[in-house]
Design a protein around this nucleic acid. Structure first.
Lengths: 333, 333
DNA sequence: TTGTATGCGTTATCAG
DNA sequence: CTGATAACGCATACAA
């Protein structure tokens, strides 16, 4: 077997030891427990290591310590604007804990997700599964064999981070009620989405409270085009305001309205959720600002705790609040 | 040392072997070279492995084979809309090659990037560095010690994928010229960006060719707000059209124009680059569609080649072409 | 404070 | 076709 596939002669702990005139264990300690060594030794070994371009081999470390120093983070779609900030925050938090992050794209497919998590078992210390599309039973069996943290999936017994968009959604309904709207529409997101269920429930509840007539509809697809196409339907409903499942759908809706010459917020009001693209639309959208960064950090924290042996169930709920911008106005006369 | 940190009893190849009544080697072969085994043996071992929830330990595999089955992908900012599609495509291509992908966020900082790549050396087989902000010398020394592929960085001697936005940019100028525009502005991107240099050069060239007077300016920051703020400056220039470095800047510009009551494309024309958010603005922007997905795939292919021992310099150039949408129109009378 | 010996889980070599 | 054995690079218990 050729150990150096392709030609790079990677420096090993032994080579460094030989050059520095110490034993391999001393080199090892230089990196993992320098306080056990005489400062001058650390100094000398470090400089030799740097000179030789030595970097500890993660695989070998993993084999002896049982910790790979890598976690997995699986999301349904990296390209969905909701996830990159979450990924970024998680990645930063992980790095702070000395962990690298392998990103998995589940391709909006629960089966694919489960397969990824399984494979990741052999390469990571644990995995975070965000907005999973997989059925409960699958998640449970995954949790049996892997250190697992869920984001936006409420499964008793599994550590999880939940973004609670209900307060924000209720606030949106309240805002619209205050502006005189009495008939509004909710444009649903994906049926398999836990968040969609939560949001819908909160809106229904708030509408009852404010005596608002709510009509719900489903966009053909929960994306920009779907939202754009849904504008026609929404207008036919005779409502004066709409709440979109998320920003992407909301932005589509906004474009669809503009396309039809409907001025927002003068003639129609609109709110969305997530605050992914709301700040960059014109007019900027009133939305619910989901704390995705905090969610990413919290998920890593929970996973790190679990890796450390904490076995109790941990749940972190993060409230999402309304952000008022320019798409909400008084009901037209 | 406690081998099973935290409580999970991971099945090893030996346990599977014992239960299946074969030798460890046979279990190993069941997964890596099943064709060397009698089908019935493969069958039996596989079922035992499945029962025990056995997954090969990547670290141990890495140690013997010299291949970790993991590559790194470092980008300046995961949350920048340009990268997620590239990441996604790269990740998919990598997976097809049996590789997992560790994502690194360089935080728009060349030094941070270099540190990430260094660290990744111990955990990956090679790394892809996209739109690096690091100076040439740093990249070269990184290339000395790591299998490295660059995206959008033209460094002789290092395998690289270059998205050539010049044709698209020239086409934009041509389009505007055909619509009667004779004075246009270019809003620059980051100074350290290789792409910005390429785009500017192409535009200058095309403007000369079409007898167009070009004014260039710099947004305070190359983001949405920067673009929005730049709208005022652009309007003062007395030009009838503008080309933005990228979509984000373009979208900001578009919002800034709307804010000032300037109708696009009736009173002012606008083009951008990247096609990240152009399709979702209102009106949808004319832009240059960068083949980021292809770039991600190509980068992985180059890296896989390098891992396979291909030592010759490989360069892949991908042309970006114009996508005409709704922000370009005839010069106002 | 440092060195020596052993084993982590797997694969490749070689023997059968 | 299958089994025994020796590494891979590192961290640790133990010895010095």
């Amino acid at each position: 077997m050729a150990p150096s596939r392709g030609g790079f002669e990677r420096a090993t702990i032994r080579r460094v030891a030989a050059v520095a005139g110490v034993s391999p264990s001393t080199v090892s300690r230089t990196f993992s427990h320098p306080h056990l060594l005489r400062p001058s030794t650390v100094e000398r070994v470090s400089s030799v290591a740097a000179e030789l371009g030595y970097v500890p081999d993660g695989s070998a470390q993993a084999l002896t310590t049982g910790r790979r120093g890598v976690i997995g983070l699986v999301v349904p779609d990296i390209a969905n604007a909701f996830f990159p900030p979450l990924i970024r925050a998680a990645q930063t938090a992980a790095e702070r804990a000395g962990l690298s992050t392998i990103i998995g794209d589940g391709n909006e497919d629960g089966t694919k997700e489960a397969a990824m998590v399984s494979r990741l078992r052999g390469q990571t210390d644990g995995v975070i599964l965000a907005s999973s599309r997989a059925p409960e039973a699958v998640l449970r069996s995954l949790h049996e064999v892997t250190r697992l943290v869920l984001v936006n999936r409420d499964l008793a017994g599994v550590p999880r981070v939940l973004i609670d968009s209900a307060p924000g959604m209720r606030a949106c309904v309240g805002l619209l009620a205050g502006l005189g709207h009495t008939r509004i529409a909710y444009v649903n997101g994906p049926a398999t989405s836990w968040s969609n269920g939560e949001r819908l429930a909160a809106i229904e509840d708030a509408c009852r409270e404010h005596d608002i007539v709510l009509t719900t509809l489903q966009a053909r697809l929960p994306d920009h085009r779907g939202g754009r196409a849904a504008a026609a339907e929404v207008l036919e409903l005779g409502v004066t305001a709409a709440i979109a499942f998320d920003d992407v759908l909301g932005q589509g809706l906004l474009a669809g309205l503009a396309e039809r010459g409907v001025r927002v917020p003068e003639q129609f009001s609109l709110t969305a959720c997530d605050d992914t693209v709301s700040a960059t639309t014109y007019p900027p959208m009133t939305t619910v600002g989901c704390p995705v960064r905090e969610a990413g950090e919290a998920a890593v924290e929970l996973l790190v705790e679990a890796l450390g042996g904490v076995d109790e169930e941990r749940v972190r709920r993060l409230p999402a609040d309304m952000v008022v911008r320019g798409t909400t106005g008084p009901v037209p006369a």
